Simulated assay, not measured.
Amino acid sequence: MNGLLQLYGLCVLALFLKMLVISCYQGYFRLRYRAFANVEDAAFVGRAVMVQDLPQVRRAARAWANDLENIPLFFVLGALAIALQTPDDGTGLLFCAFTVARAIHTLTYLGGWQPWRSLAYGVGLACLLVLAAMIGKALL
């Protein structure tokens, strides 16, 4: 197997697991406090519907939404970089940096830690931009 493809696969798996953890984090707080926004969920545990989700659940939902704005772009750009055979060393470094940056972004988002959240976001965005530039160069 191509080493870069294997690294990409590991990064995709790590990002998937990171997003799964956010979902579990939300579920933990909903179950712990038996606080549900959906009628059927609240009825299932014999509680009234929460008009608004718990603060932890709302924050996790925003972190998850931010992931949905960034991680699919990584999936596409990473696959294109491999298909177009961009330089292995630089591409691999960008794959790892993006994955670590997104993990740090999630931790700092859930913790409410600025400016670290913005810095992690910026590093991830920079990785995507450099990947896009490498792909553009390979196409020209």
Rank of each mutant, 00 (worst) to 15 (best):
C11S: 08
G122T: 02
D89W: 06
Y33Q: 09
L80A: 09
F36E: 02
V57M: 13
C127Y: 06
T99W: 14
L119D: 00
F36M: 06
A79D: 02
D89A: 13
F95C: 10
L110W: 13
V12R: 15
A132E: 03
L128Q: 07
R102C: 01
L131T: 08
Y33M: 03
L7N: 03
F75W: 11
H105V: 02
G112Q: 08
R30H: 04
I71N: 06
K18Q: 08
Q52W: 07
E69N: 08
A42Y: 15
V57L: 10
S23P: 12
T99L: 12
V39E: 06
A79V: 05
D67G: 08
R32Q: 00
I82W: 07
F44T: 14
A37N: 03
T108C: 07
L13E: 10
I71L: 06
L10N: 10
L5V: 11
A126L: 11
T91V: 06
L31I: 02
L94M: 11
T86Y: 03
A37L: 03
G112W: 10
G46L: 12
A132N: 07
V51G: 08
A103R: 07
L119M: 10
R30S: 02
A81G: 13
Y33H: 14
I104G: 00
R34T: 00
C127R: 07
A35Y: 09
R62Y: 08
R117I: 02
A65P: 06
L125S: 10
L68S: 08
Q6Y: 12
V76A: 09
A42H: 14
L17K: 05
M1W: 04
L140F: 10
R30E: 01
F95E: 11
N38T: 00
A138D: 00
A35R: 04
D88Q: 14
L10S: 10
G46T: 12
D89S: 13
C24G: 09
L131V: 04
R59M: 13
T99F: 13
L129K: 08
L13A: 15
T91P: 07
L13F: 12
N66G: 09
N38K: 05
R62S: 06
K137F: 00
D67Q: 11
R34A: 00
N70E: 09
R102S: 02
V51Q: 13
Y8D: 14
I135C: 03
L54W: 03
A61P: 11
L125F: 13
A43H: 15
A61T: 15
Y121S: 07
G9V: 03
